[in-house]
Design a protein around this nucleic acid. Sequence first.
DNA 1: ATGCGACTTGAAGCGCGGTTCAAGTCAAGT
DNA 2: ACTTGACTTGAACCGCGCTTCAAGTCGCAT
Lengths: 136, 136
Amino acid sequence: MAGETDEALLDIGEVARRSGLAPSALRFYERKGLIEPAARNGLRRAYRPETLDRLGLIGCARDAGFTLAEISAFLGARPSDTALRDRMAAKEREVDARVRQLTRLRDSLRHASVCDHDPLVECPDFKRAIRNVSPR
Amino acid sequence: MAGETDEALLDIGEVARRSGLAPSALRFYERKGLIEPAARNGLRRAYRPETLDRLGLIGCARDAGFTLAEISAFLGARPSDTALRDRMAAKEREVDARVRQLTRLRDSLRHASVCDHDPLVECPDFKRAIRNVSPR
DNA sequence: ATGCGACTTGAAGCGCGGTTCAAGTCAAGT
DNA sequence: ACTTGACTTGAACCGCGCTTCAAGTCGCAT
């Protein structure tokens, strides 16, 4: 009973299926220090189910434009990591700026899709709107 | 007076300096069909000043997450290109969705930067917030 | 014992958005 | 005539986020 192969652990194919990621991506994330199998059955990786939550978080952050290196740093964050918390706060400001930029861009596109100018890019309204997207 | 080398045109170094892009990037954009010199002085590219506006627009779109190929397509847009206008409208919806996603992410980060949980990623509030960033 | 299917490894390849490099061209200055 | 300096070219290289590939290792069923 002591050294049994834990039935609750998932193999890489299962994690891939349930996370929507390719096995190759999971091994890649492991090399980057983002995830780690709880054990091995022989050569085979055996993952804890919580790994799926972690992968959800990683996917989120990646979708949001964080690099895997940034995510890797954030994942180990403890309350005492003041430098890291500062970077998170910085990232928040960065994301906030990006939200405002994309909002302006969306408004430009909104105009572009109803504008009659020929060629489109020469429309003065469009050009003015676009210039507001990233001024300087 | 007829075949004079147009003094109003800018050489690549000037365009680079004024656009903030490297000359190599300008040549790269040319290969991708984004810009084109108005003329050559011998081998040297000679750009119209309007190219700077175009580069501003390109920079905008690129900052906004468009690929250079997409930008290249948009740049030739005429009002009659209905397919292209549809794609612009689609892009608008895409950008809008992204704005909402990033807004949620910003809120998560805002919490993260004041949260005391150890490790940070295990904070239930943070996890709940994060799950809202890209649900399914 | 043979084969299968799912896993393992390291190395190479890919698309994107460029930069860097070597080798060459050209105009202007001394 | 020679140097300097900004340009030209094509090809190679880069970091990122992976995928693909070849070759090998398992456990299990026939």
